[in-house]
Amino acid sequence: MLKVENLAKKYNGKNGYAIENISLNGKGGEIVGLLGHNGAGKSTTIKCITGMHPYEQGTITIAGFDLAKNPIDAKRNFGYVSDEFTLFERMTGFEFINFMADVYRVSEEDRKDRVELFQQMFALGDSIYNPISSYSHGMKQKISFMGALIHNPKVFILDEPMVGLDPYTSSQVKAFFKKHSQEGNLVIFSSHNLDVVDKLCDRVYIIDQGRILEEINIKEFHKTGKDLEEYFLSITKRVAKV
């Protein structure tokens, strides 16, 4: 469903690569995590995968479409929630979702069903008719989710998705991730929240200083009896000093 090979990205005006030799993959039915410290390269990787950032080397294939050669088909197959809530703030939540549905060419019936489902799931109520500029952080996060999911994407990509969500919505989102992956889709998200990654993901890629250090199969890892936090800190050479 998602295949990234030897991805490298350099920012303008910087000498070194922000990310280098990034290779990862995700299959339908999986939840994959990108784990790393702040500035490790998670967001850059995700921004390259979504086409937001141009990249110097490597190939990205989404649902069988090469992002560089066939960007429109590749983009049609994923939904993306960014870590910054860059939304069209002058629109109402409802207008925004309809706009996203138009952009992804979602039929009227499908968008109606999904909006009703999401409204229930995210408990936004009538505030969906308010301008996004009046929303709280959490509400903006929820409307971002709804906009990204309106076309029922095969690949759901999220950058730090749990930040700012209340406990109820957070549990709803986690349940949705599981349901979405069980339907044969891929969910891939970046996080530095070890607990969420540990409980939710099937596989995890640990990223540090722009490179993938290790790929971990969570079920296999649990069998070793090791603690994910301790292991993560030891391989990224940042043991907590108290």
């Binding site: 109402t92 409802f94 207008e95 309809n98 549905a101 138009d102 060419r105 979602v106 039929s107 009227e108 968008r111 109606k112 909006v115 009538d126 505030s127 008719y129 308010n130 301008p131 500029s133 009046s134």
Partner: peptide
């Protein structure tokens, strides 16, 4: 804080 707009349930595809 903006007041809510009229509740529109128009799902027309454009």
């Amino acid at each position: 804080v903006s007041q809510p707009f009229q509740k529109s349930r128009n799902y027309n595809q454009l």
